[in-house]
């Protein structure tokens, strides 16, 4: 068995209950429990979170920089997806 530092994991922290999990960094760990514990010891030393997700890096599927055009630009002109596209009579007020 060759010596190594173990696989890389991506760590996501939830700052407060109810908030989304946000990527905060990576680390090495040999198993799931270790990934959680290492994340706790590394990324919550100053009370930065209340819940942790640890995901093996190689399980993440990422879009490529070349995808920017075809993936994301088409949505830029779909103005009708935003509430500001619609006119509400003043008399109605907030909707």
């Amino acid at each position: 068995m060759s010596d190594n530092q173990g696989p890389v994991w991506e760590i996501f922290l939830q700052k407060k209950a109810g908030q989304p999990f946000v990527h905060c960094g990576s680390l090495h760990a040999f198993d799931k429990e270790m990934a959680l514990q290492n994340a706790r010891d590394l990324y919550t030393r100053r009370g930065e979170g209340v819940s942790i997700w640890a995901v093996p890096s190689n399980a993440i599927v990422a879009s490529s920089p070349e995808d920017i055009g075809p993936f994301f630009e088409p949505s830029n002109d779909k103005v009708y997806r935003h509430p500001t596209f619609y006119q509400i009579p003043d008399a109605i007020g907030h909707m």
């Binding site: 010596d3 190594n4 530092q5 173990g6 040999f30 198993d31 799931k32 093996p56 190689n58």
Partner: peptide, 22 residues
């Protein structure tokens, strides 16, 4: 630390706790 890391690696394989990440 080498034997420590090897032990952790061996344990992970035995217990299949690891998402085939390595």
């Amino acid at each position: 630390g080498a034997w420590v890391r090897e032990a952790a690696q061996a344990f992970a394989r035995k217990r299949k706790e690891i998402y085939e990440a390595a």
